[in-house]
Design a protein around this nucleic acid. Structure first.
Lengths: 147, 147
DNA sequence: GTAAGTGCAAATGATTTGCACAGCG
DNA sequence: CGCTGTGCAAATCATTTGCACTTAC
């Protein structure tokens, strides 16, 4: 990453920390960078491994604590799919997931029709629906090609 | 439960065990009974507590082992929603869930329109979709009434 | 300077496993 | 009787927490 981008990124992250009222630390900066660069919905361990390359002294619990902080301020989403391990998504806008049951890869996708379809009566009677989350499960192209 | 029902239930469970090639034990029978009677998607601990009333000597790991066995043979579904703890659903037919973000209660529901809606192109290109799982999240009636 | 953030290690909670004994087929 | 299933306790895995030290503001 070039100096200019780094500077710009730092500037952006500074604003985020200010608006959240949290301190800007090197660890948080790098965890945030890893999250934004990640396109694979990494687990806490995955994030730890990636951040460790830049910040060798970081500890796993700092990663957990930072992820919890980010989630609290709505910077990221915590997701659970297939296995019990939590995964983290820097995409906080409303979206659904494509989940490969073979390699466990998670891909974001949107489906406006589902979002706008009128709710069935059972759902309306149940209570107040705040969000619709759809998981399409199957085998991704990569796994299909591999056999 | 009356004698007749118990006998009938035992008969049914015997058939299930035979078709799965597993032994019929008292523990399995009672765990299965609890599952069928449960309408609240209990966790392993919940199931353990309920079975314990009938089988005081049962151990938690037997519950886990039995649930894993049942899942392997498709008698139940393991579900994850909101919190990381696994929950178990004796309803193995395709269905969706209403999840209360306050009391964490899970309710089954069906939504044929979603099941039959043509997939968006991004999903078709991603790979082969095998299942659609929808989670409607919100506040259930009980929680709304309580404030 | 001071409260928030970090690192370490130890605790926790859910789930799994090794082993010896018990009981189904 | 033999092998599967069970119970106990100990192990494991993801995640959390207590505490003393460090650092951003």
């Amino acid at each position: 990453m070039e100096t200019k981008d780094t500077k710009k990124f730092l500037e952006e992250f500074k604003k985020i920390c200010e608006s959240c009222g949290i301190k800007l630390t090197y660890q948080r900066l790098e965890i945030y960078r890893v999250l934004l660069e990640a396109k694979d919905h990494p687990s806490a361990e995955d994030i730890f491994a990636r951040v460790q390359e830049r910040v060798p002294t970081i500890s796993l619990d700092t990663v957990y604590r930072t992820l919890a902080t980010f989630e609290k301020f709505g910077l990221i989403c915590k997701i659970y799919a297939l296995d019990e391990k939590a995964r983290f998504d820097p995409n906080v806008s409303h979206h659904h997931h494509l989940v490969c049951t073979k390699c466990h890869k998670i891909t974001d996708f949107e489906w406006q029709e589902v979002d706008h379809l009128p709710l069935p009566s059972q759902a309306r009677q149940w209570g107040e629906i705040k969000d619709r989350y759809l998981e399409l499960r199957g085998i991704c192209k990569d796994c299909l090609e591999k056999g």
